[in-house]
Design a protein around this nucleic acid. Sequence first.
DNA 1: AGAATGATCCTCT
DNA 2: GAGGATCATTCTC
Length: 205
Amino acid sequence: MKNVSQARDRLTDRTPREFFARDVLSVSKGLLGRTLVHELDEGVVAGRIVEVEAYHALGDQASHAARGQTARNSVMFGPPGYAYVYFTYGMHHCLNLVAEPSGVAAAVLIRAVEPLEGLDLMRSRRAGATDRLLASGPGRLAQAFGITLAHNGADLVEGRLWIDAQRQKVQEEISVSPRIGISAGVELAWRFYIDGPWVSRRRSG
DNA sequence: AGAATGATCCTCT
DNA sequence: GAGGATCATTCTC
């Protein structure tokens, strides 16, 4: 498959761990425009990150880590550059990338990507969805990319799931808003996105 | 364009 | 037991 091998060649430049070791807001904004890549047995899926949210244990009541370490959120307390995946509402998985140094619990929720590679694979995993809704929303994205609890704690620097280091030029301005689906912590404008057809929610108006 | 609702099960109190 | 960093569908303007 020529396209797949070309995709591999082009997407093997991994974002290093130092990128994730910075403050979670910088990591969040720095992820916009980069490509999320997952090597599945069936092929490669990849997409340009267009929507993220930051979560931090300190001063952020919306974070899973706000009330201390538990079995579920323990990956958030570990070193940066690992995947924190949780299962919610009885059917959805959500992918986060751990940020900040070890001991500081913080992560970036990947909420939406623009599909770039492996479109047919995503379509088969998201039967019935239009292309615009393939990976627009954290649950949809996880389904399209085949992310499950088995990926909790996965190393983004070594494994089959990573962020390509190449950053597509972010021509659009980065939009900022409160985070979605939370009750506490609404005062923090920690959702960052490149407005367009691929985000989970367009700007109201 | 919003609001409401059911699905469905892991995690924490 | 209760609730949840959601989604798809069905309502009510």
